[in-house]
């Protein structure tokens, strides 16, 4: 790997200062499970690597009053997977993490890191779309909150400016009766998804009061299947309604043909997974 200048930041201020100074010549190191392999392959060759590993307070999962549940930038995928808080109240995220096979990758990798890499096939991002997660972006001069749905602008491209880092993910407190589920289809247990789907629903008085359906691997970014959601909202989720919603969802993605699957197969699988996910959650 090409040599680089290495900094270990002690605070978020230090890190954002360095990142602002070096701009696109610098990369952030958290878990490193995406960064280091890509550097080894020569796909990226930063002149500066700014480690945030030594910053206190970023490895945490904690309730922040009524704001929701905070997951700090250094919290590993494995920590979140094993958290009882997540398993009880955010099942869709727990299931998404279970679908990632390698324990080592989950031990090293972070939730925020996974988000910032931003592959449209990310199981984590699909779950977070369905949960309505928000991200806290910090720079040397300001902090801002952004919905995860507004964070991505293209394949592995996000709105972060030089000098900005994501310090946490905030999950809203789920209303009583909210349920969720995640499904993924892949060639093998360890492979990236052909299609992945996350569904979060709330049923009240037999009717679907709230529905978020997120689909990954079928567009340049993870998408919400809003057409499908509209079919379900306000109605009794019977077999016919679910089938209709699934069919509408299949039209909302624009999957490509690649090494993992054909576009046609993916379109069909969107329908199948959305139907199965909704049926399972109900």
């Amino acid at each position: 790997m090409k040599p680089f200048e290495y900094f270990e930041s002690g605070t978020v201020e230090e890190a954002t200062q360095l990142l602002a100074e070096y701009g696109r010549r610098a990369e952030v190191l958290a878990g490193g499970i995406d960064l280091v392999p890509r550097m080894r392959k020569g796909q990226i060759q930063p002149e500066y690597v700014v480690s945030i590993q030594k910053i206190h307070g970023l490895d945490c999962i904690e309730r922040d009053g009524e704001k929701g549940l905070r997951i700090g930038a250094l919290t590993s995928l494995r920590t979140v997977e094993l958290s009882p808080l997540i398993r009880n109240d955010y099942v869709v995220l727990h299931e998404a993490l279970r679908s990632i096979a390698s324990i080592q990758v989950k031990t090293m990798g972070t939730v925020v890191g996974n988000i910032c890499v931003g592959t449209p096939a990310s199981d984590v991002i699909v779950a977070l779309f369905a949960l309505g997660a928000r991200l806290k972006i910090v720079s040397i001069s300001q902090e801002r909150m952004i919905s995860i749905e507004n964070f991505f602008v293209g394949v592995k491209q996000n709105v972060l400016q030089p000098g900005e880092i994501v310090t946490e993910v905030l999950l809203p407190i789920p209303a009583v009766g909210t349920r969720g589920g995640f499904l993924k289809m892949a060639r093998t247990a360890t492979d990236i998804a052909k299609v992945n789907v996350a569904v979060v629903l709330r049923i009240a008085d037999d009717r679907c009061e709230h529905a978020k359906i997120a689909v990954g691997s079928v567009a340049p970014t993870v998408i919400r299947a809003k057409g499908a959601e509209e079919i379900l909202k306000g109605k009794k989720p019977g077999k016919e309604i679910i089938k209709e919603a699934a069919e509408v969802a299949a039209k909302e993605g624009n999957p490509i043909t690649d090494i993992r699957s054909t576009g046609e197969y993916r379109k069909e699988i969107i329908k199948v997974l959305v139907r199965r996910a909704v049926e399972r959650v109900i």
Binding site: Y6, R40, S51, Q104, V105
Partner: peptide
């Protein structure tokens, strides 16, 4: 594999399994 996909380089760091091919030694 050298790119974090096979697990052959697994070592335990503070008791947890990590991929040494994808770990910068300084960390």
């Amino acid at each position: 594999c050298g790119v974090g996909e096979c697990g052959a380089c697994t070592v335990l760091i503070n008791g947890k399994p990590r991929l040494s091919c994808s770990t910068l030694a300084v960390t």
